[in-house]
Nucleic acid binder design. Structure first.
Length: 286
DNA sequence: GCTGTAACCTGTCGGC
DNA sequence: TGCCGACAGGTTACAG
């Protein structure tokens, strides 16, 4: 499910409930997600105050006053469901669908009356507790490429990362060491908007094409965040609402349809690339 | 070192 | 209606 825009939407939804709040009750309903939960997970979190909630690539980072950071990756189907306390009934929460089903694996209750349920059907998501001072050196973060919406991401950076690579540009953009946070959907959309074929060797892109690509990546991500992300099957934001960017897809999921550009007579095709579906227009992407 | 593939786990959808 | 196979937003280990 979640690529950068969806994770950022979740972060924005959780921020008002978490930042400044203390975790009054923590419940782990199983010992593992994709990986085993950290040792003494519940004890290390209970009573901790959340000082900040940030995002790096597709990771959510909750800095705690204990000197540790709770790292959360949503995997493919991970989501947080926020329920608020019923004022007149202490300990009760306004129920929200999915908050308490068999796929709810971790529950966090804050001293501000919010209950956050981490629900992940496929359990590709994971959580870790890492000393905040060691975060940058952690293998999950040390090798990450620049944030695509940050000031460090430009055509020059992409040129350096692409240099000499014979791998196709689609797979290269999915490599989090090249640029952090892109996934299958937004890579397809960005390549379409920059009129680049997903099959081009990354190292073959010319400076003007790289510039177009950087611009397209930025615009697609910004528009998606503005729309609250994309909801295909499972994704919902922290308030349980759907994202709307899927209505703006120009190629993703549109196999067999005419190219959205009225001047182009192409058709959207789909083919497997690196085990994932790539969608592209067979005429205007070269 | 680079590249492609399989695997992780579960749910959904389409075809028969 | 029920069964089966294909496919799904991510990441990583491994083989070539």
């Amino acid at each position: 499910m979640p690529e950068l825009p969806e994770v950022e939407t979740v972060r924005r939804g959780l921020e008002p409930h978490l930042v400044g709040a203390r975790l009054a009750r923590v419940e782990a309903r199983r010992p593992d997600l994709r990986f085993a939960l950290p040792e003494n997970f519940v004890a290390r979190l209970t009573g901790a105050r959340v000082e900040a909630l940030d995002r790096r690539a597709k990771y959510l980072l909750a800095s705690l006053d204990t000197g540790e950071t709770l790292v959360v990756h949503l995997g493919m189907t991970g989501r947080f469901i926020v329920e608020t306390a019923v004022t007149e009934r202490p300990g009760a929460f306004h129920h929200r669908a999915g908050a308490d089903d068999k796929h709810t694996h971790v529950v966090l209750e804050t001293d501000r009356g919010a209950r956050l349920s981490f629900n992940d059907a496929r359990r590709f998501g994971y959580m870790a507790l890492i000393p905040t001072a060691e975060l940058a050196a952690n293998p999950w973060f040390a090798g990450l490429g620049p944030e695509p919406l940050g000031p460090q991401f430009d055509a020059g950076v992409l040129a350096a990362a692409f240099k000499g690579r014979s791998q196709n540009v689609k797979a290269t953009l999915l490599d989090q060491r090249v640029v952090a946070g892109l996934g299958n959907i937004y890579v397809c959309e960005a390549l379409y908007r920059s009129h680049l074929s997903p099959e081009r060797a990354a190292g073959s892109l010319k400076p003007a094409e790289l510039k177009r690509l950087v611009e397209a990546i930025r615009i697609v991500l910004e528009e998606a965040i503005e729309a609250g992300g994309s909801t295909l099957r499972d994704y919902r934001n922290a308030d349980g609402d759907l994202g709307y960017f899927q209505h703006s897809f120009r190629v993703y999921g549109r196999e067999g349809e005419a190219c959205v550009d009225p001047k182009c007579r192409g058709v959207v095709r789909r083919f497997p690339q690196g085990g994932r579906s790539t969608f592209y227009c067979d005429r205007c992407q070269r």
